[in-house]
Design a protein around this nucleic acid. Structure first.
Lengths: 344, 344
DNA sequence: AACGTTACCGTTAACGTTATCATTAAAATA
DNA sequence: TATTTTAATGATAACGTTAACGGTAACGTT
């Protein structure tokens, strides 16, 4: 239900901005000199500069970014393409980007793709029409058509959270193999031998990496792998819940679960509770990402911590280094991960 | 630890875009006619239009948003000023805004304020320099200096999630009094008579509204209010935890807690568990917001549901109606709330 | 036949800023 | 004193697009 209150108001949408010319006229200098003052350029007398800035302040002058952008071919804006800003993982990454951007006087325009490749393509094009100076993209899959277009068109961009191994491009991502290894090793050391992995689709490199780490750990500790214990699919709470239920139905005799991410682990917790089993006594559980809610769960979730903020910050920095220097080489940054041991 | 991989790459930052003039030349029409085709204007022959669009597509023409913005004084961009995009409540709101914006061919630029008034002011100014067509602001407090400036400068904006009662402006907010009432009434009907309220600071209107609803419910059911049971302060998990601990220390003999928001309720849950008490048998608990994690908690949290997505969507729609029509009246939209009963 | 109407298209100017070059005055040097 | 250098400023053009207006040809109307 929506309640409306209507009262009189004398505001419209025909806002008036002060232009640099107005400032210049009042200061009795040329527009150019005024521009020099505003932009803190060297070849201007200190007194005139002070005068111009003073008048600009008085009049409430605000630089017209559109005009600047047209002239300088720089908008001071970075486009961000992610799955969903509500996902706590991406919320952290996005936040890191915003913080880093603000510090460098850049702004973030973001677009959600909802894991839809078509929306991703569309979002990229719309952002390019806005003439963003560069793009930060967390791609929905390993498909690389639009990425190659970007390279061809010489658009600065950074891939976030994954790597395209066979393409030379800028990327910042996590050490997923290590993450998968740490999670699995932890469970093994807790005495588990039959560890189920509920993974994401393997055409996404993070899911592939975590599986690889899983295998590596099993191998190291001499445990033979049972393919039936590994499933792939979507990666939210609901999928975690359902895939865990399936594991029970199949009577696979597992004693622990390694979930692709924390959300899935939360789903798994529900299924385990419903089954009347206790975590960690009956079933071991490890998540992935270390979103803030892990600590709030009962029992608090053991998980692999990704440096989410840092992922955002480093991506942005890498992008700016591409934009503002004439670096010709691709740079790939892999962030370290660790395990946060809690109650599960 | 950061690992670097460097390989050769032949990309730079000197991207080249196709201009409308190039398209026009190739199509052997004037720039204006090309513009007509691109903008789907009526006074153009269907054949020429097709030809121009075809060539634009071939050449990979992408409209230069900066030039359009300069000429038309519209950027197709909306500035969003919120506390923190990681806060699940604002993540939902922001998402609603993004979805609604995308549908109308607008983009969102957002800035976090971290509840810092200075940052809020700064963010607004930076967004205005980007010449956003309007602003969606969830203000950090009831201070209205910068708001009044916006009105004076004729900048379209909408206040999100609260109301400035004595100022005529566009706003979308929740029925906080009802929310406070429903939460309190629920606990009363569960048999509680001494209900603690851990609220936000009262200079923020939502906190004030929820307190009002709390009082209203007590009054209706003939329960006298004990001021000692009401505390105000910050509103995150930590504060919920600590304020609950203080309640125990003061031995106030309460049997239920109504928390300002879900995050605080999660903190309260921790404190209650540590005390060795069971929810809801020993202590009743109601949160506020209905963020997605309420359902995942054990026990699942009963809470007041705010229409968060809708809050974002309606705010954006209201802003666009201000921008694109010449409505002169202020419009205030109050969204209904309800209670989601779970286990607590 | 003369005029008006319509459909289509082009010309010009403008949005607000900055880059480039030119200019002036003052200071430094020969 | 004549010349060169330096500091400070101004004039002009340009970024890419669209708005406003003007023009032309084809057709219809009287």
């Amino acid at each position: 239900m929506i309640t409306l209150t209507v009262t009189l108001m004398e505001i419209g949408s025909n806002m008036k901005y002060i232009t640099l010319r107005m400032v210049a006229e009042k200061a009795k200098v040329s527009v150019n000199t005024a521009s020099r003052a505003i932009n803190n350029r060297p070849d201007i007398n200190l007194e005139t500069k002070k005068r111009v800035l003073q008048i600009a302040k008085e009049l409430g002058y605000i630089r017209n970014g559109a005009a600047v952008a047209l002239r300088t071919k720089k908008t001071g804006t970075v486009g961000v393409v992610i799955e969903d800003n509500r996902n706590p993982f991406y919320a952290e990454v996005l936040n890191g980007m915003e913080v880093a951007a603000r510090e460098k006087n850049y702004h973030i325009i973001f677009a959600n793709t909802q894991r839809d490749y078509k929306k991703e393509e569309e979002a990229i094009n719309l952002l390019l029409a806005k003439r963003v100076d560069g793009l930060l993209i967390a791609p929905v899959q390993d498909r690389d058509d639009d990425i190659k277009n970007l390279i061809e068109a010489n658009i600065p961009f950074v891939i976030v959270g994954r790597d395209f191994e066979n393409i030379e491009l800028d990327a910042v991502y996590n050490d997923e193999v290590k993450g998968g290894f740490l999670a699995t090793e932890y469970l093994i050391k807790k005495g588990h031998k039959r560890i189920a992995l509920i993974d994401g689709f393997l055409y996404k490199s993070p899911a592939k990496g975590r599986l690889e780490g899983y295998k590596k750990a099993l191998k190291k500790y001499g445990i033979s792998m049972d393919d039936a214990l590994v499933s792939v699919g979507d990666i939210d709470v609901k999928d975690g819940y359902e895939r865990t239920k399936q594991l029970f139905e199949k009577e696979l005799d597992f004693t622990a679960i390694f979930a692709y991410n924390d959300m899935m682990a939360f789903g798994a917790m529900q299924a385990i509770r419903e089954k009347g089993l206790i975590i960690p006594e009956d079933i071991g559980l490890v998540g992935y990402d270390d979103i803030p809610f892990c600590a709030l769960m009962d029992p608090a979730l053991t998980t692999i911590r990704l440096k989410k903020q840092e992922l955002g910050i480093e991506s942005l920095k890498l992008l700016l280094s591409r934009i503002n220097s004439n670096r010709k080489k691709a740079k790939k940054i892999m962030l370290d991960v660790d395990i946060i041991v809690r109650k599960t």
